[in-house]
């Protein structure tokens, strides 16, 4: 009934794992590499468009992920209510 790792903590763990995966995927997260910002990139005003899209993608992904988490939790609660109703009706019948 009371799992060691709570529901919210599972969400936090998911976020943590995602952050660590990002670190592994992109090594320059830890080690600064200013050479990536070439002069050509700086002169083109739309060169950094991918960063803007990345921000919007992540924000929306996390929002939808959280809403999905809430809807799954709601489903779990409905199942629990059904189970409790079943237990109570069984007890009343005996």
């Amino acid at each position: 009934m009371y799992p060691l790792i709570g529901r919210s903590l599972r969400l936090v763990l998911f976020i943590f794992i995602a952050a660590v995966s990002m670190l592994v995927w992109e090594k320059s997260f830890v080690f600064a590499d200013s050479s990536l910002n070439s002069e050509a990139q700086q002169n083109d005003p739309e060169a950094n468009l991918k960063y803007l899209f990345a921000v919007f993608f992540l924000v929306w992904a996390l929002f939808f992920g959280y809403i999905l988490f809430l809807s799954r939790r709601l489903k779990e609660m409905r199942n629990e209510v059904t189970m409790l109703k079943k237990i109570i009706s069984e007890k009343n019948n005996t």
Binding site: S8, L11, V12, I15, A19, E26, S28, F29, V30, A32, D33, S34, L36, N37, Q41, A47, N48, Y51, A54, V55, L58, V59, L62, F63, Y66
Partner: peptide
């Protein structure tokens, strides 16, 4: 937690093209 994570992640993504590093 959700919003603080997004602050850190969006900040890191913005820092990369502006400061040249993901994190300082």
């Amino acid at each position: 937690v959700i919003f603080a994570t997004l602050i850190l992640v969006t900040g890191a993504i913005w820092a990369k093209p502006v400061w040249g590093v993901w994190w300082s």
